[in-house]
Simulated scan of single mutants.
Amino acid sequence: MGVAAMNGVYEGLKSFYIEEDETLAVNAYGKSKVAAEQFISANCANFAILRSSIIYGPQTILPITKSLPIQWIDKVLSEGETVDFFHDEFRCPVYVKDVVTIILALSKSWILDGKQMQLLLNMGGPDRVSRVQMAETVASIRGYNTSLIKHVSASSVNRGVQSPADISMNINRLVQTLDFTPTSFEDGVRRTLQSINSS
């Protein structure tokens, strides 16, 4: 069985996509994910495809050099300078330990229980948030001045590639399939920031 995490497959013109919604990726990254899904579905008898959102959480045991989302927000706000955040780009960030729990549960079901599966699941977090709301959550927990968070439109920045405005996902099927309670964004951020304090 393969467990593959994919994202960016939706066009971003609505909220809370369900798994049956048409995939109309708006950039090469998303199109590559759709192609991977199609290949897995056509060639594997046993699989779980997980459509992820922004994955956040504590730094890994062996630190990675890539900037992690909550750690980056915490750093820039702690410096006391005004920072631009998009108010009109929405995601359902998923706590990394939930991702691990989901993959372990699916692997156990296949390895220990011997269950065959052909699953396609949205694997976002339970909360739809903008980049501004992500920053405001960090600021609230840390006690930073929220006036440092400048609200800007995603269209005001040329990132060289089109980005979907809203790829928030309905995760009801995931919750029902695994009898799983996802971590709220606020709780996940709080745990992430606690890990920074203790490191």
Results as ranks from 00 to 15, higher is better:
F39D: 14
A42H: 06
R142K: 15
T146W: 02
S168V: 13
A42W: 00
G8K: 05
I167C: 02
G8C: 10
F39C: 05
G2C: 14
D74E: 15
S153Q: 11
M123C: 15
S107T: 14
S198W: 05
L104R: 00
F47V: 08
I49C: 07
Y10D: 08
V9K: 05
S153Y: 04
Q59A: 12
S184E: 15
P126W: 11
S184Q: 09
T60K: 15
I70C: 08
S109E: 14
S15M: 04
A154S: 14
I55Y: 06
S168E: 07
I49E: 13
Q116T: 13
R191G: 00
N27L: 03
S130Y: 01
S163P: 01
N145S: 10
M134K: 03
A48R: 00
P58V: 09
Q176N: 09
T177Y: 11
Q38A: 14
I54N: 01
K31T: 10
S156C: 04
K66R: 12
L112P: 06
V129I: 11
S163R: 04
E186Q: 09
A4M: 09
K115W: 12
S198I: 06
D179E: 15
R51W: 06
L104E: 15
D166V: 01
Q71F: 03
R142S: 14
K115L: 13
F39W: 15
L148N: 12
I149R: 03
L193P: 00
R131I: 03
A42I: 08
T23H: 14
S156F: 05
R191I: 06
N172L: 10
C44T: 08
A25T: 04
P69A: 10
T23G: 05
D127P: 09
N197M: 11
K33R: 13
S195K: 06
A5M: 14
R91T: 14
I40G: 10
Y144K: 03
G114F: 11
Y29K: 10
I64F: 11
K108I: 03
L68K: 08
Q38S: 14
A42V: 01
S32M: 07
I18D: 11
L77Y: 05
D113L: 02
I73C: 08
P182Q: 02
A42C: 07
V132F: 09
G57P: 00
S53Q: 14
L121A: 10
V83G: 00
L119A: 05
V94H: 01
A4N: 00
V157K: 04
Q162Y: 06
Y17K: 05
K14Y: 10
L50E: 12
V157W: 02
T146S: 10
M134P: 04
D127W: 02
K33L: 13
A36Q: 02
P182T: 08
L50G: 03
E22P: 00
L121H: 04
N197Q: 14
D187C: 08
G160D: 14
F85I: 10
D127R: 02
A35Q: 07
V26F: 03
T183A: 03
Q162W: 11
V96N: 01
G125C: 05
D113C: 04
F86I: 02
Y95M: 07
I73Y: 04
Y17N: 04
F47A: 11
F16E: 11
N122L: 06
Y29S: 12
D98I: 12
V26C: 13
T60A: 15
P63F: 12
